[in-house]
């Protein structure tokens, strides 16, 4: 299975490398690539960068460079960064370091607070509606084993479904998300992992599981992924 994914990676990377940009006219600017890493960057911005760099080896190299840099464990950079507040005071009144006026700070804070309160009210107001929608839709909640728990014997997997289903299918994956086992149709809302499947699990490894509901052979809903660690 792992070689299966490796093969897909190899082929896709070959595809991605097959059409280098003839010129850099259509490439995003360096600032656009850097900005796309910001948490506040829009989904559209990120999508544009991904779509582009998947076909442009030059931009891909730059993108990967930033990914590597962000993944590097060096925390010295943060340590070396002086505190912003101190710097603002150091040269207040001059261009770059000029702190925003007190009025604008206050206005910004007030606006932020208003938005926060409004969001909370909106969330509370919408919650009931969401619940109704969910119950008519496809929510399956995994009950046991609790996500992140360590198990030492074949677990009894239990779930709760808010939708009508003919049967459920439980799927088990390893840490790389490769399928390990798929159950047959299950009528109940629980299933003990067969001991022969459990015997194949590697101690110390994390496994993921999820449940999909079916009505008249069509999938009607699915759970989030649950996670457990095996110990023997």
């Amino acid at each position: 299975m792992s070689s299966d994914l490796d093969r897909l990676k190899e082929l896709f990377q070959g595809y991605a490398a097959s059409s280098p940009c003839p010129s850099r006219e259509g490439c995003p600017s360096s600032a656009e690539i850097v900005d796309s890493f910001e948490p506040r960057a829009s989904r559209r911005q990120k999508t544009r960068i991904i779509e582009h760099m998947a076909r442009c080896p030059l931009c891909r190299e730059e993108f990967m460079m930033l990914v590597e840099q962000r993944s590097s464990k060096t925390s010295a950079a943060e340590a070396a960064a002086p505190s912003q507040a101190g710097k603002c005071r150091a040269s207040a009144g001059a261009g770059l370091l000029r702190p925003p006026g007190v009025f604008w700070r206050f206005a910004g804070a007030l606006l932020g607070l208003t938005l926060l309160v409004w969001s909370l009210v909106a969330v509370v107001h919408q919650r009931d509606r969401w619940n109704v929608l969910r119950s008519g839709g496809a929510t399956i909640r995994l009950l046991a084993p609790k996500s992140g728990h360590t198990i030492s014997r074949p677990p009894l997997c239990r779930w709760q479904a808010k939708t009508v289903a003919d049967f459920y299918v439980l799927e088990l994956f390893d840490g790389s998300l490769l399928p390990v086992w798929t159950s047959g149709p299950v009528r109940e809302r629980e299933l003990r992992l067969p001991s022969e499947v459990y015997a194949r699990l590697i101690p110390g490894q994390t496994y993921f599981w999820m449940v999909t509901s079916y009505l008249e052979q069509a999938p009607t809903g699915e759970s989030q992924m649950g996670r457990f660690v095996v110990s023997r």
Partner: peptide
């Protein structure tokens, strides 16, 4: 970060 990418370009 932008300077690094521009230098690479």
């Amino acid at each position: 970060n932008s300077a690094v990418i521009d230098q690479l370009r």
